[in-house]
Design a protein around this nucleic acid. Structure first.
Length: 336
DNA sequence: AATTCTCGCAACCGCCTTTAT
DNA sequence: GATAAAGGCGGTTGCGAGAAT
């Protein structure tokens, strides 16, 4: 396979960029903009392909880039979003101002993934189906409880039939009132993880309802039934098949939890449901969720005062767990 | 001190999608 | 509608720096 068309037409330099090249590119972009990347090399006097220029600019030279280590909040957000979006680095990066998809991807591959994969406990990679959960709970089976690398974004399913991975937050403390050190979870063997998964993630998920019968129903244990579908075009959860009784419960919880029963088009993902309980924050789902992006649904994050991840507030126990993650990472420094 | 190993990061590759003709 | 060009994205590679032996 040859190179990109814009690269094959001329001799292009490869490898690391020199400061002189950077300066030329910056001058060119600031002067002319980058309406057409293929013309940038000529305008800038660079022997690079337009694609390379675009990459250099977006990943390194852009003035709004934030350099340096990822904060625990950013790491937490990456993990959370990855559990939702999979390896959609560009989508994830959009929620991290000043971070590029490449940066997020590298951070994930070099730090987070490494931390999770060796123990084969990577909920962010796991996709659960209601059948998995049903089978696991009803039959006590541990085998096949979850599958790795079945992220819908990596699969070949039709775009309108992608199963959203309804997985509990890989950061338990984010979604649950979870007091164990996250590293302890990471150390679980796969089988023990499978068997402990329900205990670790599902039980804390209880509705603060007066009517406990509904909460104790088997269906409620699957309150986040993974029947929602994922539309990659809008990056929205759609057609969430939500247990009606549970939804009704939701609707009756206090005055602040305004989750409409008709959640077919504005369904919460697992983290949304869980967060409402764990974070002690009301979930306010607007009637029109078209503009509600994934980040906005992260109630734990949106409970903070700022609009940017770095400004987000975490409950103290969550911060502790995130700190544990970050401190265990080789080179990431905590900014807390 | 020299060598090997490990790790993080920048950049490239190739595929897919979007846009223009 | 078909084709080509360009843009965008995710996966992978290679290099350099620091750590370990």
């Amino acid at each position: 396979m040859g190179h990109h068309s814009c690269c094959s037409k001329q001799k292009v330099k490869r490898g690391l960029w020199s400061p002189e090249e950077d300066e030329k590119l910056i001058n060119c972009i600031t002067t002319y903009g980058h309406g057409c990347w293929s013309s940038v090399p000529q305008l800038a006097g660079l022997q690079r392909c337009g694609k390379s220029c675009r990459l250099r600019w977006t990943n390194y030279l852009r003035p709004d880039l934030k350099r340096g280590s990822f904060s625990p909040q950013e790491a937490a957000l990456i993990i959370e979003l990855h559990s939702i979006l999979g390896n959609k680095w560009a989508q994830i990066a959009k929620h991290l101002p000043g971070r590029t998809d490449n940066e997020v991807k590298n951070f994930w591959n070099s730090s987070i993934k490494k931390k999770l994969i060796p123990h084969e406990v990577n909920p962010a990679f796991a996709s659960f189906s209601s059948d998995h959960i049903h089978n696991s709970r009803s039959h006590g089976s541990e085998e096949g409880f979850f599958t790795l690398n079945t992220n819908p974004n990596l699969g070949s399913q039709p775009q309108d039939q992608l199963d959203l991975p309804i997985v509990p937050s890989p950061m338990p403390s984010l979604g649950l009132d979870y007091h164990d050190d996250f590293n302890n979870i990471l150390k679980l063997e796969q089988t023990s993880y499978a068997s402990n998964f329900v205990d670790h993630f599902l039980p804390p998920f209880q509705l603060p309802s007066n009517n406990s019968s509904s909460c104790e129903s088997s269906s409620w244990s699957l309150g986040y039934q993974p029947h929602c579908q994922y539309d990659p075009n809008v990056q929205q959860l759609q057609n969430f098949s939500f247990n009606e009784a549970a939804a009704a419960q939701y609707n009756n919880i206090g005055n602040e939890l305004m989750v409409p029963i008709s959640m077919a088009s504005s369904a919460p993902a697992a983290y949304e449901i869980i967060d409402s309980n764990a974070c002690g924050m009301p979930i306010l789902y607007p009637s029109d969720t078209q503009e509600l992006d994934s980040l906005a649904k992260l109630s734990c994050f949106t409970s903070g005062h700022g609009s940017h991840p770095q400004d987000l507030q975490f409950p103290s126990n969550q911060l502790e767990c995130i700190k544990a993650i970050m401190s265990s990472l080789p080179s990431s420094s905590s900014s807390l």
